[in-house]
Write a protein that binds this DNA or RNA. Sequence first.
DNA 1: ACCAATGTGGACCGTTTGGTCCACTTGACC
DNA 2: GGTCAAGTGGACCAAACGGTCCACATTGGT
Lengths: 206, 206
Amino acid sequence: MDQPVHIDRMPAAFGRPLEFDPDTALTAAMHLFWRKGYENTSMLDLLQAMQISKSSLYQAFGGKQALFERCMTRYGDLMIGQLHDALASAPSGLGFIRQFLESVLDEARGVCEARGCLVLNTANEFARRDPAIAEAVAQGLGRFHSVMLAAVRRTQLEGAIPPDRDAVMLANYLVSSMSGLKTLSKAGADEASLKGTIELVLKALT
Amino acid sequence: MDQPVHIDRMPAAFGRPLEFDPDTALTAAMHLFWRKGYENTSMLDLLQAMQISKSSLYQAFGGKQALFERCMTRYGDLMIGQLHDALASAPSGLGFIRQFLESVLDEARGVCEARGCLVLNTANEFARRDPAIAEAVAQGLGRFHSVMLAAVRRTQLEGAIPPDRDAVMLANYLVSSMSGLKTLSKAGADEASLKGTIELVLKALT
DNA sequence: ACCAATGTGGACCGTTTGGTCCACTTGACC
DNA sequence: GGTCAAGTGGACCAAACGGTCCACATTGGT
């Protein structure tokens, strides 16, 4: 009946202090999972990237899958934070949307490696096999959707998208389009194809 | 220097005959990889699905990865054949394109399980890690692209897409859109969202 | 100085992984 | 019927997997 949930403990008042920063370690794990996927990331990979011992990992995070779920949440937090800021400081809603879609071009240009989006990667790897993972995916996707929804609504207020268009559907469409672009980028699509596709995606908004 | 390539041998003139149909076995393996992905499919899974012994698998297909590459080709052959036929018998190019996109709804309706597309799944699982796999993905994607290109050109001749639109880009766009829909379907999107997204995708064509 | 509490390193575990090997079977040909 | 090419089943393998355990280290409290 007792379940060993691995919630974050309060900073220990007694005993030996942690030798690592859980936040840093978690971020390192997140980047690994992001690059290599869940199954293809081994314990050894994790320990090396996080620079901690196996005991510490189990003690602090509970195991591979529990750690992964934490990484999903962390990923969402980071990404949604970034997107929120970008939207707030963007000159226009449409400009933000374009910038969002065009971020995929960095991968094609080789600026960074084509690792896609952790949430979408996970959706593809697990489909709906594991309920806990499926829930994490749904939640992550929902957060992306709400940022896109805000961007669409702002763009409507600014007049670049007709006010009678269904904003929720448009947000769905943007998430779907981004997903497609990420996959094609992983498949090795060249920059020109992606650019052309982005223009077509934007065309459907107005 | 001698590489043990596992090409299909001619039907053996001497010796004990095969106890299984290589074609049937290959198809069974393809469906397994399609559902579960490469890493998540074990040898045992394959042997059970293909109903052959480990020796036979290695003898006939050379190993897991070699078998997988054969499955990718087989998948392309089957799918492109189906799509080609569907395009040929479709009342209109646009009708075919709509039907193609709407095939994703079966997954959301639970008619079949959300296994996506083997080529896109593989692009997501491997990115460009393995050169041989990357090549197989590129080839598969190219074949899909050419079917879509034919559909777009036909639709242009029929007048439902303006003749001045870049057909190659539109085909890219369709592949990308399909990819996004498949991923969202895997993530558990409901039928209405997918339907709405499909309408938006179609809107960008005209 | 000692004790309680917590963290850490590394040995160890059983299972599963993909892959190899070989004795044996099976069938066609002479 | 003997011979030879080819296929098959199952034992076997080393490596890697995720996970557990415990002796020891390191701290604060008394």
